[in-house]
Design a protein around this nucleic acid. Structure first.
Length: 241
DNA sequence: TAGGCCATCTGGTCCT
DNA sequence: AGGACCAGATGGCCTA
């Protein structure tokens, strides 16, 4: 695979995933590509290419009878006040506690019902926030994965996003490696005593190469190396807001 | 109508 | 003790 091929493989918005997949399949039998192909197929099978426009969904309706939040508006956008505020506090129908006796588990028996409810609502809100953070991160990932972003193409599912991202990283790594070999090859024709200036040598020691086998940087460095990651999402970061 | 995907609740476990 | 994380369960929405 040439670098040019790699650049064309995921040219960004507007390209059909099937076309990219076909290009992937046409490539060699490199282990990277074998992985990329298998995962790429899965990703595309799960994700885009179903031909339907992304339609607004009433996500907040989740939880069914217990949490009748307004359709088309997430619990978060409703200010952490999901429908459960108005609901009777009882275990979910599928939960072990409910299966057992339809009441709260023993761990919560030591508190007054009002405190139980307040605690449960607090826990639920935290969990919602956590899942929303996770979804925000997934959205960020989708935004940088080259696939068809047009409104006529359905948004990538979670699993498709992860698989495609992995696929994309592997492909970029291989393209980088090939570029590296190309530069080395070109340098062979030059005098060894005149190395490329740092600005022209993207693979020098100062270059960031994620697969060089070096240990991951410590947390503060990591946060600065990946500015898209907010410090609040980094459990090791000392610079929490 | 079945299957896929999703949001949410919930209890358990681990960590700080 | 409180928070983060995880997995199971449930029901809603959408598409084929």
């Amino acid at each position: 695979m040439s670098v040019a091929q790699g650049a064309e493989l995921f040219p960004g918005s507007g390209d059909l995933p099937e076309q990219a997949m076909a290009e992937l399949k046409s490539l060699g039998s490199d282990p990277y590509l074998a992985l990329a192909q298998s995962y790429g197929q899965s990703a595309f099978a799960y994700g885009p290419g179903r031909g339907a426009a992304e339609s607004p969904r009433g996500y907040a309706g989740g939880g069914g009878a217990f949490h009748p939040a307004p359709l088309g508006k997430s619990a978060e956008s409703s200010g952490e006040q999901s429908g459960d505020e108005e609901d009777a506090f009882e275990p979910a129908k599928g939960s072990p506690a409910y299966e057992r006796d339809g009441k709260l588990p023993a761990g919560a028996l030591g508190k007054k019902p009002k405190e139980q409810r307040s605690l449960r609502l607090s826990i639920n809100a935290r969990e919602r926030r956590r899942m929303h953070d996770l979804n925000d991160a997934l959205d960020g990932l989708r935004s940088v994965i080259p696939y068809a972003h047009s409104p006529s193409v359905r948004k990538l599912s979670k699993i498709a996003t992860l698989l495609l991202a992995k696929n994309y990283i592997l492909m970029q790594a291989q393209a980088l490696e090939e570029m590296r070999r190309l530069v080395a090859y070109l340098n062979q024709g030059q005098a060894l005593s005149t190395p490329l200036p740092a600005t022209l040598n993207p693979f020098g020691q100062s270059a960031v190469y994620p697969f060089s086998g070096t240990a991951l940087p410590s947390c503060p460095e990591k946060c600065t190396a990946f500015p898209g990651t907010t410090s609040s999402l980094c459990k090791h970061c000392n610079d929490k807001p």
